[in-house]
Nucleic acid binder design. Structure first.
Lengths: 123, 123
DNA sequence: GGACTTCGATTACACGCGTAATAGATTACG
DNA sequence: CGTAATCTATTACGCGTGTAATCGAAGTCC
């Protein structure tokens, strides 16, 4: 299955549906009204485009349409992560990780968790 | 200083100049000929756009122009990383790092290095 | 010094994206 | 029924991007 490219604004739409689905267009609109000030028409457009590019699927429920993801969030994260990794770090994951470790603020717990992860990875 | 947004193709151009600068347009073209099959005109266009958006500066050396970065690679990495972090991971660095640790293949040395980094961060 | 070459600047064009208005279809209400 | 309300689909438009041709100026060669 080919993972489509999800644009910036589209991620916000997808996130709504990854969290809960299926939803009608208007439910998505309501959900997004919390974090954005997009017009409903704008959101409908994005829903259509996402369907067209294969990121969403929908089925008619009477007169309303129910939208749901056609690709998992995880797959999109991997695709997007890969693209970012290649573009900015020339594909080198080590430096990427080092960058974020240095640049971000992490809680003690997170640090411990990451160290555990790395240890497991090392063995 | 405001860091401009660098597009996908533009990163490749910037990388040439981050590695060695100043260079004439044609030197950049030659350098890129190794990895791409872009027409020289295409590359000239990107150089112009990068100057216009403040990522490059240039000075005339006789009839030729010499291009050089106006922003550091590190600053761009930080900007781009921030945008990626927000978009895909909702700003949570921990999960981002965890994702790449799990998704990537890392050498023993890299793993050790990252663990050291984290340890230092923890203290 | 006029034609040719060489460069960078200007212009072009299609496509994706952010943003939205309008049209078309279907349902619901009076 | 017919008109208003409600949905989705279609169309729009300006901007960034990928990709490139063409223009114009400035040297270079006879």
């Amino acid at each position: 299955m080919k993972i489509p490219r999800i644009s910036d604004a589209e991620w916000q739409v997808m996130d709504v549906l990854w969290q809960r689905s299926p939803l009608t267009a208007n439910e998505v609109v309501d959900e997004l009204a919390r974090n954005t000030d997009w017009e409903p028409a704008t959101i409908k457009t994005m829903l259509n485009r996402l369907v067209k590019k294969g990121a969403l699927k929908f089925k008619a429920e009477g007169k309303r349409y129910l939208y749901a993801p056609a690709v998992t969030r995880d797959a999109c994260v991997r695709t997007e992560g890969r693209s970012f990794l290649d573009r900015v770090f020339g594909g080198a994951a080590g430096p990427l990780i080092a960058h974020f470790v240095e640049d971000a603020k992490l809680s003690k717990d997170e640090i411990a968790e990451l160290r555990r992860l790395l240890e497991r990875k090392g063995r």
